[in-house]
Computed example of a mutant assay.
Amino acid sequence: MGTNILLIEDDEALHRGIRFTLEQEGFETRGARTLAEARNELECGEFGLVLLDVQLPDGNGFDFISEIRSRWRIPVIFLTASDQEFDVVRGLDLGGDDYITKPFRLREFVSRVQAVIRRSAVAQEDAPAAAKPQHSGGLTLIPGEMRIEKEGRDIPLSLTEFRLVSLFMAHPRAVLSRDQIIRHVWQGGVDVLDDNTVAVNVRRLREKIEDDPQNPRFILTVRGAGYRWNG
């Protein structure tokens, strides 16, 4: 049986087309056209991925991802007609694992869905090996829940952020190159699309864990070499 996917999309024609494509690829797919329907599906079923439209009749996907992150450990891909950089960055900063703009090419869409599911599976495999909380410099990483605690505050992580901070904390003070980070975090770099991908994800992680992301304490840049964790 394939991975169960929840598709939250209110455009009827697009909804049918996406479900047909995913089911042809062997995925089990459930559909919701409102956030109310999505909550019911999440309460009743188990899913390996959520495809989340941003504009829905009864709410906003950007708001709904916070609810998902607080209750379920499921990767989320945003689907939206907006390709504005602000919206893309906002979606990723809120914990989205990818952001796909409409209209999209179906083969690329399926490839990106498969990539997120693959990363999720690897993250699940990694968690038992480091099931105990990891402490570093006042931060506590909770592997089984993919979150960090900082000064009593819970910080949810996306799959990419979880793998990135796990790598850093496992190698304190070691300088990690861009290529080393890609091999660990993206498992061969399947969906690393440009040279800025690592830098963008480091910036997102810094914004979550650093007191001053412009003058980081934990993730230090080693010019010309990579990054170093200063736990």
Rank of each mutant, 00 (worst) to 15 (best):
residue 4 N to Y: 00
residue 5 I to A: 08
residue 5 I to Q: 09
residue 5 I to N: 11
residue 7 L to E: 05
residue 9 E to N: 09
residue 10 D to A: 03
residue 11 D to S: 11
residue 12 E to Q: 14
residue 15 H to F: 07
residue 16 R to P: 00
residue 18 I to S: 15
residue 18 I to Y: 12
residue 18 I to K: 14
residue 20 F to W: 14
residue 21 T to W: 13
residue 23 E to K: 12
residue 23 E to H: 07
residue 24 Q to C: 13
residue 25 E to L: 06
residue 25 E to N: 14
residue 26 G to S: 06
residue 28 E to L: 01
residue 28 E to R: 01
residue 34 T to F: 02
residue 34 T to Y: 01
residue 39 R to L: 09
residue 40 N to H: 10
residue 42 L to M: 14
residue 47 F to E: 00
residue 49 L to Q: 07
residue 50 V to Y: 08
residue 51 L to Q: 12
residue 52 L to H: 07
residue 53 D to I: 10
residue 55 Q to D: 09
residue 57 P to I: 00
residue 59 G to M: 11
residue 59 G to N: 12
residue 59 G to E: 11
residue 60 N to A: 11
residue 61 G to C: 05
residue 65 I to Y: 08
residue 70 S to A: 14
residue 70 S to Q: 12
residue 72 W to I: 11
residue 75 P to N: 07
residue 76 V to A: 02
residue 77 I to P: 06
residue 77 I to D: 12
residue 78 F to G: 12
residue 79 L to W: 12
residue 83 D to C: 03
residue 88 V to F: 12
residue 90 R to V: 10
residue 93 D to Q: 14
residue 94 L to G: 10
residue 95 G to D: 06
residue 96 G to D: 03
residue 99 Y to F: 15
residue 100 I to G: 13
residue 100 I to V: 15
residue 101 T to A: 10
residue 105 R to S: 15
residue 109 F to G: 15
residue 110 V to G: 14
residue 111 S to D: 15
residue 112 R to Q: 14
residue 112 R to M: 15
residue 114 Q to V: 08
residue 114 Q to A: 14
residue 117 I to D: 13
residue 117 I to E: 13
residue 120 S to K: 05
residue 120 S to V: 04
residue 122 V to L: 09
residue 126 D to W: 12
residue 128 P to Y: 00
residue 129 A to F: 02
residue 129 A to H: 02
residue 133 P to W: 00
residue 134 Q to E: 01
residue 134 Q to Y: 06
residue 135 H to Y: 07
residue 138 G to P: 04
residue 142 I to C: 03
residue 142 I to K: 04
residue 143 P to H: 03
residue 144 G to C: 01
residue 146 M to A: 09
residue 146 M to S: 09
residue 146 M to E: 10
residue 147 R to T: 02
residue 151 E to R: 15
residue 153 R to F: 12
residue 157 L to K: 06
residue 161 E to K: 05
residue 162 F to S: 05
residue 162 F to H: 01
residue 163 R to D: 11
residue 163 R to E: 08
residue 164 L to F: 02
residue 166 S to G: 12
residue 166 S to F: 13
residue 167 L to Q: 12
residue 168 F to W: 13
residue 171 H to Q: 06
residue 172 P to T: 03
residue 173 R to Q: 13
residue 178 R to Y: 09
residue 180 Q to V: 06
residue 180 Q to L: 04
residue 181 I to A: 04
residue 182 I to W: 00
residue 190 V to F: 14
residue 190 V to Y: 13
residue 191 D to A: 10
residue 191 D to Y: 08
residue 193 L to V: 13
residue 203 R to W: 00
residue 203 R to Q: 03
residue 204 R to Y: 03
residue 207 E to F: 02
residue 208 K to T: 06
residue 208 K to Q: 07
residue 209 I to L: 02
residue 213 P to A: 03
residue 214 Q to E: 07
residue 215 N to H: 04
residue 217 R to P: 01
residue 219 I to A: 11
residue 220 L to M: 06
residue 223 R to K: 15
residue 223 R to G: 08
residue 227 Y to M: 10
residue 230 N to H: 05
residue 231 G to M: 01
